[in-house]
């Protein structure tokens, strides 16, 4: 009964909430518009935006040493999670069956597990960093902990359901993933989409000013 609800209606509900929520957030960001910049542009904004979008993937040299741990852990977590989310065999099958209708090559089982482990190492270290570092502890609010906790729980239940033989474990994983989908658009987890806008915006501003930042 509950299983059917999680597997069917609730899944579609959460998917709809996710899509509409993300669209709403993105449109509201776009509708906010840009501040009029009356100064004569020194160079084009779009090149600056594009450059900034990619250059920000690498930390600036003066913070590279101090933030080395968060840099490494952050990349471990994000790469692992990305590989896990889109290239794990069960996920590929699920997405192909429920959403896209076509599938793509999935990672072999061992690579899938290694990416899960990398993601777990990164996430645990980052979470501890958030809890123990005075600055991040002060900056963090409930939203951050809920987001981190939900992602962690989804990953953990996914790893507990690895045998793919016990329906309740799969449903637990799916249920938490659905909660995450519903929570996603209204939290800082939106950075998965908004990082493009924020980076391009500041890149465009800087580019127009002719600042190589």
């Amino acid at each position: 009964m509950i299983g059917e609800l999680i597997d069917g209606p609730f899944w579609y509900f959460s998917l709809v909430v996710f899509c509409i929520g993300v669209l709403f957030r993105l449109i509201s960001i776009l509708r906010a518009g840009l501040k009029p910049d009356l100064a004569v542009p020194r160079s084009g904004g779009s090149t600056g935006a594009l450059r900034n979008l990619f250059s920000r993937f690498i930390p600036r040299r003066d913070v590279a040493t101090r933030g080395r741990l968060t840099f490494v852990a952050g990349y471990l977590f994000h790469i692992g999670l990305f590989a896990l989310l889109f290239f794990a065999r069960p996920h590929v099958d699920f997405i192909a069956e429920r959403i896209t209708g076509f599938s793509w090559p999935a990672l072999p089982y061992w690579a899938f597990i290694i990416s899960a482990e990398i993601a777990f190492i990164g996430l645990l270290l980052l979470w501890l960093h958030r809890l123990l570092h005075p600055v991040t502890r002060l900056l963090s609010n409930a939203d951050d902990y809920i987001g981190t906790g939900l992602v962690f729980l989804v990953m953990l239940t996914g790893c507990l359901a690895l045998a793919q033989a016990f329906e309740p474990l799969r449903l637990l994983h799916l249920f938490l993933a659905e909660l995450l989908l519903i929570y996603f658009p209204f939290s800082s987890l939106m950075h998965a989409f908004t990082f493009v806008f924020s980076r391009s915006y500041s890149g465009a501003v800087m580019g127009r000013k002719g600042v190589n930042a």
Partner: peptide, 13 residues
């Protein structure tokens, strides 16, 4: 089953 899978996955961690 959950314990076994979790144990196997977190061992290398």
């Amino acid at each position: 089953s959950a314990s076994k899978e979790g144990h196997n996955l977190f061992g290398p961690v």
